[in-house]
Design a protein around this nucleic acid. Structure first.
Lengths: 354, 354
DNA sequence: CTGAAAGCGCTAACAC
DNA sequence: GTGTTAGCGCTTTCAG
């Protein structure tokens, strides 16, 4: 059943049916009703492929995330998806597994899809090829919105968070709990959250006149295993830290694994503050202090930005001249893991060398 | 740039370009090369909307899950998505938030999409409308593959797990640990995992001659809050259970919340065995014994089934006469939460009434 | 306010 | 092996 059948049935032309379907004005109320009756009676469904071809665009967008199973991204998807439905868009979902090659393949394969927009969390800030492809999408009428991570020199719209401030607060919280020997497990320098959280860490140390020690700043690359290894190295130092700022949720899991395997108890042997909450821990013995963000809302916001970009482009609005980058506030949730008995009991938290 | 431009450039007809694009035989190697050179040189990308329209089908499939944020579904998506890329399909992702109405809306909105297949975890087994719509997709050349949950009287292909056996093992494990007062927090009776796990629970009790007590079998509906409430009710009984079989991961979180808030310690005051692992707990004090499944692989398998169904239909293969339903084995991972001190220390685990 | 007709880019007979 | 051409179902001028 297609638009011609409907037209015949309703004694009008296909043009009229099309007008009705798309809520055009200039259709007499009576004919509109006539057409609608046929459509509902025969439950006709317009063929979107035909529509896409004819209009040269679709109602599909793609979301590309580095790790499908990371709850942070699942939550993001949830918000984005809800808002997309609201706006009448369908969402293609892709995971890159933190692999730039894969990211490029996916982007490449999407070129033929008439995408109406692209929301992505790029693997790395420095992938020149990614930038080139994204720019091509943008030119081909598929605006790009970034989330959380950036693309260097890309000028793309995006929803980010105030990573440095969040990190600063986390580290300051540890300092105020009496720590002076504070480590950070870092994310890659090729991602905004990676370097910005490190920046926040350094700022906090600087403010309280604590010397920055390179050996306290290993990379965990936002991956559990690497972070586990980083934690291990930290604790093998001759002068190990008394506290650690874990700059990502996967990182935190790596730390916790190390603690458990080595029988280190938070609050007794070590302190930790994380970035991004881990819901499941809330009902365990681990009362984790974390930097939290409104993740669902970030997804919603990304979709709103995207739609605005789409409409702006359609209307050649001058608003389109502005790059829109929103920076979401973080919030420190104190649950106690920043404290440590040993600090009080004489074993000084201050650096005992240097 | 379209196929005509390529044809002109290469001095061939559009038919030939199309043949090259689709790897048809009957193309001389030299002309194939000639065409490919143009395609690469001008980096032409075929317009999939045109292709879809012309062929009356697409390379898009949809995955509909009840809860985007449940890690179980995220893992499923991961497996499915990886395999889909392998096969050259794109995946639309939708979440229904366990709401049948929403499920129907989504299905309805997808009718115009020329979907090539549908993978879904239906909210309820009993939604007649869902069944009707799914059948329509199947007839309209979009095979349906179910995961985990079923559709009553639907005869759809699917990937399920041996829920009853898994549950049986879980409960038996508790019995062997000395428990006789074992509760279950159930899922809805309108879902396969809901009633099958309950069935496994009953089987285990029966085998060991333990009387089934209705008050030990409250519903948690696979939701954290409801399960929390269920747990609360259980522990308020005058004769509370010493152990609980939590039949789903969200359910387990609800239980844990209750335990924590009421200072009940697993292994001291209560025992628990869950269904579906919770990765994050592994590095906490909660060494949860669980029924585990190869979730990622279930996603992969679903995609394989779907592709088989698609191909089968295309070839009008007689293989299509069979409904393919795979039942994945579960595995009990013992970590210790099935034990309880109190059982040994004289406070009998057997029912002290009846 | 409505209709006729020309595309949108690709596929697949069918002819050569 | 290759080319010609008629669709696929919809949108959108342009007439009227």
């Amino acid at each position: 059943m297609n638009i011609y059948d409907v037209a015949k049935e309703a004694n009008v032309s296909v043009a009229t049916v099309s007008r009705v379907l798309n809520n055009h004005k200039n259709v007499k109320e009576s004919t509109r009703k006539k057409v609608m009756d046929v459509i509902k009676g025969k439950d006709f469904v317009p063929n979107s492929a035909a529509k896409n071809l004819s209009m040269g665009e679709s109602r599909n967008i793609a979301l590309i995330v580095p790790d499908i199973e990371n709850p942070f991204f699942a939550k993001l998807l949830h918000g984005l998806s809800d808002q997309a439905i609201e706006f009448g868009y369908n969402v293609f979902m892709f995971g890159t597994d933190e692999d730039t090659e894969r990211e490029l393949q996916i982007l490449e394969s999407l070129k033929s899809e008439l995408l109406r927009g692209l929301v992505m969390i790029p693997v790395s800030e420095d992938s020149e090829n990614t930038k080139v492809l994204l720019n091509r999408f943008r030119e081909a009428s598929a605006p790009v919105v970034l989330i959380d991570r950036d693309v260097r020199g890309g000028d793309f719209d995006g929803v980010f968070s105030q990573d440095d401030e969040g990190a600063f607060n986390a580290v300051e919280c540890l300092i105020k709990a009496g720590h002076r020997k504070i480590a950070i497990i870092r994310g890659s320098d090729t991602s905004r959250p990676g370097y910005e959280r490190y920046r926040g860490y350094k700022k906090a140390l600087a403010k309280y006149n604590i010397e920055l020690r390179k050996e306290y700043c290993p990379y965990g690359d936002f991956m559990e295993e690497n972070s586990y290894q980083a934690m291990k190295k930290l604790m093998s130092l001759e002068n190990p830290p008394t506290a650690v700022f874990s700059s990502n949720n996967m990182t935190t899991l790596g730390c916790l694994r190390y603690f458990k395997e080595n029988n280190l108890k938070i609050g007794r042997d070590i302190s930790i503050v994380g970035f991004d909450d881990i819901k499941e821990l809330r009902y365990t013995d681990i009362d984790l202090t974390v930097v939290d963000r409104p993740v669902y809302e970030m997804g919603v916001e990304a979709m709103k930005l995207l739609r605005k970009a789409i409409e702006t482009r359609d209307k050649a609005d001058e608003d389109g001249l502005f790059v829109k980058r929103n920076f979401i506030k973080t919030r420190l949730i104190k649950r106690g893991s920043e404290f440590c008995e040993r600090l009080g009991k004489g074993e000084s938290g201050s650096l005992d060398v240097d």
